[in-house]
Design a protein around this nucleic acid. Structure first.
Lengths: 154, 154
DNA sequence: CCGGAAAATGAAAGGTCCTTGCAATGTCAG
DNA sequence: CTGACATTGCAAGGACCTTTCATTTTCCGG
């Protein structure tokens, strides 16, 4: 029914990079008429291939100037242990990213804070309260060198 | 000049969730006329508060399913050393994020790869070729627990 | 290879949306 | 208070979006 063909791929790649491009410009970019492009885009959205559109904001401009990378080890890898930790970490609004990891630590977190004082509060109120934690290692980002939304894009 | 005020915050939060909302709907959402809203949006984009708009695609449409966290130490912290490393790392399209860090390692990278074979290629062709590197430590994300674009939002 | 149904397309149209000019209002420092 | 500048709403013209419709393409069963 809805095969994702070459033109769809071109549409998706364009929208991945320029999510707010006009339908007219998008149509020209992929070599379709505006009406055909509009209908394909409608299909891609309604079929769930495109899950949403989002503005990417500068953390700095929103007064979250500090990024911390926090590595955490738990007391075990039982499913219940992981689930309880993850449920708790999801509640902290300052956690931007959290991955279950291979290697020395079990989880890697990326945390946004306004300043050092704010980070101290987050550490005290949130990180210290996470269950099953046996080791925490925090590092701070001194400067953002690269921040790309997707592979191969500016 | 131009503080990010309450209305700007409302605009940003809306665009965070609905990056392709029309300017007219956005204006009504935040209680402004369309023209005023359009001008504020223009300013937020040009001043760099909004770094871009991006479509979020379904996993079946995404080619890059593997995330690696790579920590790197350099042979020194001279400005020239850092600049040369950063210029080189910026050329690798698979690097999504790169921070200059405090702590044990100098840089933390987040890398997207199609699969393990693809990561091996990236490591061989790009990471091994980065200048001034004295230590590399790779970990792989087993599962994405949280991935938020910004603080306190979906 | 053929025929027909389903899907996709481009052109056109009307309705909506976006941006720019303009006058008025709001803000702030001197 | 005054002047300079930022911000606003309104209006208009131009751009854009979506729907309709006739046509073309695609895809199977026969």
């Amino acid at each position: 029914m809805h095969d994702v063909d070459t033109i769809d791929i071109a549409i998706l790649k364009t929208l991945q990079r320029e999510g707010r491009i006009s339908n007219a410009a998008l149509a020209e970019r992929v070599g379709l008429s505006a009406s055909a492009c509009s209908r394909r885009l409608d299909h891609l959205e309604k079929s769930g291939v495109i899950k949403g559109y989002h503005a990417r904001l500068a953390h700095k401009a929103l007064d979250y100037r500090m990024i911390a990378i926090v590595n955490i080890s738990l007391s075990g890898q039982f499913a219940k242990t992981l689930a309880e930790f993850e449920a708790a970490v999801k509640l902290c609004p300052n956690v931007l990213v959290c991955y279950l990891m291979s290697g020395e630590y079990d989880y890697t977190l990326r945390i946004a804070a306004r300043d050092l004082e704010d980070y101290e509060r987050i550490h005290r109120d949130w990180l210290s309260a996470l269950p099953h934690v046996v080791k925490i290692n925090s590092s701070f980002a001194l400067r953002e060198v690269i921040d790309r939304p997707n592979v191969g894009l500016g």
